[in-house]
Design a protein around this nucleic acid. Structure first.
Length: 575
RNA sequence: CGGGGUGUGGCGCAGCGGUUAGCGCGCAUGGUUUGGGACCAUGAGGUCGGAGGUUCAAAUCCUCUCACCCCGACCA
């Protein structure tokens, strides 16, 4: 490709709205352009990278036994009602109405459509197992798009679905996909960490995420550097400390005067105990129902865990009005004597005794509150948020936390959707069973952005060779020199003939501009041709990473460049 | 949806009641240059996000509205 003909110009300054590194660099390099919030065009260079990423993914999916197909974006809304997921997806589902007033959804994911397909095409255990995938545009009406390509409303995703006869088959498919994903990240030069995850709106039981560690990632990862435990903060478990009261005896309930102590710190300080000797009350609205949540004072509520415990889809903090309407005195609340309100407790309330809790009247608390002696709960479970510094549930070491970008998510769906969509098969005995499913997603644009977040310097992007838009940046200087131009043309043609992907900077620009653009675009290998190199019948070769340059003879240049590229590619796939 | 911020040529910004709205980059033409974003000359390009209002006079003040960004509730 001749640079002079290339559509998309580099910018010296990034548009002000771009904040994340990948967003800034991709805009500056002229690889993407924004058209609305969370909606982007890919310009030729960016599109080439995306297609390369797509190809790597396709190859690994095929290698794992996946069969590619194409499913519709436009989906009857009934499908979403049938699966029940129109509720869990809620507002994120883009919907529209056709001329016959028929409601349709723009697919945010394709479990419904593919399960419907399986319902038609799978009858026997002999048809299984199956791995079907597609690479296609998805739509999600995200509450807040952000970070350029990191979180958008229209995006290309590879989604594969596994269909098995039983849990053991699912485990096998899941393992295959997990390995395929690891291969993908390795080929993209992206260090991705496998962590335990919450399955969220997709549904299902077990799920894992692949994370790229980055300072400004939107997820928090809790991990243990001693054992291998790592999980998304919204899922992470930890060993809650056990608070033994001095006497271990349950002391009698006692009302105490605690004027103006509306916070946990306030009460604990006033009474002279630490916060883990108190009980904290938090109020939520879950699918419209008022919920009283009780947790030990030193802990915080994890809303994802709470949502799962309640099995609700919409969860938010209750408003002050809702709290007082429920007959609760904010700041002095406890479950003691509360009636007609759903009470959910974290199991930490059992890991101690003789707690301080509200007395449900302004200015007063109770001393020596004990569960279940003094109050009952409707639901009890782990709903506490893990923090760095907490103890690992598995080995007891201190947990740490980092931020990351989710670059892949795999789910064991089980039979949750196949039952709803009536996708079943007959076993050898003629008995009918629901198909056991898995779902495996990877967002291409997000992956591209994550790679830039991970691989850049102050000059610009550093593309891994495996997905770079071009492999070689041919950079002749002094094009008005009568020797240079024809020689550059010659080199360009020879490289192309060798099958090397070359971006030929045939612009009559100063060396500084050319070098800076080469660095910004991040093309792995730069070849500089100038009167200086011509003197020795050679060309200067420089990798985008590193500073060293070397002179390579013009004779047999194409073969030599090819060798260098192969060598580099081999290094990559090992790491 | 709650909180914060920004809208002025393609990009970055200045102007914050008073003439024909400026500057840098980029763009066009010509010339001199050029191993890390050169210089000179000439030139094109703006209903100051939109609507309404206040005023002799509005990019500038007021009201409403829209868009975009950032922080929180959601996800590949």
């Amino acid at each position: 490709m001749r640079y002079s003909k290339l559509f998309g110009k580099t910018l010296r300054q990034a548009p002000a709205e771009a904040e994340s590194i990948s967003h800034r660099l991709l805009l500056r390099a002229g690889m993407i352009a924004q058209i609305a919030a969370g909606i982007y065009s890919y310009l030729p260079l960016g599109w080439r990278v995306l297609k390369n990423i797509e190809q790597v993914i396709r190859e690994e999916m095929n290698k794992a036994g996946g069969q590619e197909l194409m499913l519709p974006v436009l989906q009857p809304f009934e499908l979403w009602q049938q699966s029940g997921r129109c509720l869990s997806f809620g507002q994120s589902l883009f919907t529209l109405t056709d001329r016959k007033e028929h409601k349709l959804a723009l697919g945010p994911t394709h479990e419904e459509v593919i399960t419907e397909l399986a319902h038609h095409c799978v009858q026997s255990y002999r048809d299984l197992p199956l791995l079907l995938y597609q690479i296609q545009t998805k739509f999600r009406d995200e509450p807040r798009p952000r970070g350029g390509l990191l979180r958008v409303r229209e995006f290309i995703m590879k989604d594969l679905y596994s269909f098995d006869v039983d849990e053991a088959g699912l485990d096998e498919s899941y393992e295959k996909m997990s390995q395929a994903y690891k291969n993908i990240y390795a080929r993209l030069g992206l260090p991705a960490l496998l962590i335990e995850a919450d399955s969220g709106a997709i549904g299902g039981k077990e799920s894992h995420e692949f994370m790229v560690i980055t300072e400004n990632g939107e997820d928090e990862i809790i991990y243990c550097s001693n054992c291998s435990y790592a999980a998304n903060a919204e899922k992470a478990q930890f060993a809650k400390t056990v608070i033994l009261s001095e006497a271990k005896n349950l002391l009698p309930l006692e009302e105490i005067d605690t004027p103006g102590t509306k916070t946990i710190e306030g009460v604990a300080g006033f009474v002279g105990v630490s916060t883990n000797q108190t009980l904290k009350a938090v109020f939520y609205s879950a699918d419209g129902e008022f919920v009283f949540v009780i947790i030990r004072g030193d802990l915080e509520v994890n809303e994802t865990k709470l949502r799962n415990t309640l099995k609700c889809s919409e969860l938010r903090l209750a408003t002050e009005g809702e709290v007082s309407e429920a007959g609760i005195v904010d700041g002095f609340a406890s479950p003691i004597g509360i009636k007609d309100v759903k009470i959910v407790a974290d199991d930490s309330i059992t890991l101690g005794a003789n707690f301080i809790a509200g007395a449900n009247k302004p200015g007063y608390h109770f001393k020596n509150v004990n569960y279940p002696r003094d109050f009952q709960v409707d639901l009890m479970g782990d709903i506490a948020l893990a923090h760095s510094g907490d103890n690992c549930l598995k080995c007891g070491s201190r947990l740490s936390s980092v931020r990351g970008i989710e670059v892949g998510h795999i789910f064991k769906l089980g039979t949750f959707i196949s039952k709803k969509m009536e996708a079943s098969f007959l076993d050898p005995n003629g008995a009918s069973w629901p198909i056991v499913m898995g779902s495996y997603g990877i967002g291409l644009g997000r992956l591209l952005a994550a790679i830039v977040e991970q691989s850049h310097d102050d000059k610009g992007i550093i593309w891994p060779l495996s997905i770079a838009p071009y492999q070689v940046y041919l950079c002749p200087l002094y094009l008005d020199n009568p020797e240079i131009a024809p020689l550059a043309e010659d080199v360009y043609h020879k490289l192309e003939k060798e099958g090397i992907k070359v971006l030929f900077d045939d612009r009559d620009e100063s060396p500084g501009i050319k070098f800076n653009d080469a660095d910004l675009l991040g093309i792995p290998l730069r070849l500089t041709l100038s009167p200086r190199t011509i003197q020795s019948q050679s060309i200067e070769v420089k990798w985008r990473v590193g500073r060293e340059t070397q002179l390579v003879p013009l004779e047999n240049l194409a073969a030599e460049v090819n060798r260098l590229l192969r060598e580099k590619l081999a290094q990559r796939s090992v790491s």
